[in-house]
Design a protein around this nucleic acid. Structure first.
Length: 234
DNA sequence: GCGACAG
DNA sequence: ATCTTGTCGC
């Protein structure tokens, strides 16, 4: 298994400088989200986890992408990218903080990432364009979002057994689902990113949680980006 | 106007 | 996200 580490390239000249500019970019891209394709079936090809860690004191960011064989969940390849924070954390604008690092790490891969699983939301977003959808549109790849918190959305309690679901609601609109990945454990919040439908996004999430609440993809990416940050900061 | 708010 | 000890359990 091969691990590559790269430096994040300079931001594009047109990278949004403030919240207003960032929202304008979202409005220009949000119409390109594809949510009616079923997407790849679980257990086939590759599944890639993405996560990012920060040291806000030193203004350093580290992203990790970990490619798994979808059938065995064995690590196939991984990459990290380290650089300078691109945007402050603003709820609803997370993609502008995380994307430059994530894209740099993805570019360093030598294999097809397959389905990309993000730590956060897809179309469950105030303008239906969260991190997973943004990453999907920019790369053209199938993506889903699996978040640890319900953000601003409402939901009923899913059934207590693994596999239980409940609609995730923005007012009356269904934007995703709360999904119980382990018996009796707090649910995760799944939404469509790009080129995958919700039923398949849920199936993928269950396939990736044979043992823990969070998908193996995010668990491994989380461990790797933290290690990369420690190394870059040391 | 105020509070809440993925990571 | 990040700051943080001990502790219960497999």
């Amino acid at each position: 298994m091969n691990t590559t580490t790269v430096t994040i390239p300079p931001l594009p000249a047109d990278w949004p400088a403030d919240e207003t500019a960032a929202r304008a970019v979202q409005d220009a891209l949000r119409t390109r989200v594809v949510r009616d394709e079923p997407g790849p079936p679980p257990g086939t090809g590759h599944v890639t986890g993405v996560d990012v860690a920060y040291d806000d004191e030193r203004d350093v960011v580290a992203a990790a992408v970990v490619v798994l064989d979808a059938a065995s969940l064995a690590v196939v390849e991984e990459a990290t990218a380290v650089g300078t924070v691109a945007f402050p954390y603003v709820p609803g604008l997370l993609a502008f903080r995380e994307l430059p690092a994530v894209l740099a790490a993805l570019d360093a891969l030598t294999v097809d990432p397959g389905l990309v699983v993000c730590d956060g939301y897809g179309i469950a977003h105030p303008r239906r364009f969260g991190l997973a959808s943004h990453l999907g549109v920019v790369t053209g790849r199938p993506t889903i979002g699996v978040a640890k918190n319900p953000f601003t959305f409402a939901h009923e309690e899913p059934g207590a057994a693994r596999g239980g679901t409940a609609p995730l609601l923005d007012g009356t609109e269904e934007v995703g689902a709360a999904l119980r990945t382990r018996d009796g454990v707090k649910p995760v919040f799944v939404s469509v990113g790009h080129r995958v439908d919700l039923a398949r996004a849920l199936a993928h999430t269950l396939h990736l949680t044979p043992r823990y609440r969070l998908p193996e993809t995010t668990r491994k990416a989380d461990a790797l980006c933290r290690a990369a940050l420690r190394e870059a900061t040391a």
